[in-house]
Amino acid sequence: MARFRPGDRVRVLPDVVDTHHRTPAYVKGRTGRVHAPSGSFHDPEDRAYGGSGLPKRDLYLIEFDMQSLWGPRYGGGEEDKLLIDIYEQWLEPAGNPAGRQD
């Protein structure tokens, strides 16, 4: 059932919305990898406004290279990573970078 598997390259949607959601600006539009599935949970974007949050949504722990996330702003090691849980509705496959139109 899960849309993504560990290792899959994924891109976080760049959408700017002013309703409640759990996707921070600094990862929007960025490409990372699925580190692990984190389970499924009530949809916060619905539940925040009194909805049932159903159906539950899959949550994934996504891994980004710090260097690619921040560029020269990042002063740490080459291998350093950022891990963050992102809901499935904010992710799209980025498996084929060569063939992708952004």
Partner: peptide, 11 residues
């Protein structure tokens, strides 16, 4: 109330 509502109210 739930956590998502509380966060929305804070935001």
């Amino acid at each position: 109330i739930n956590t998502d509502e509380l966060r929305r109210g804070i935001e």
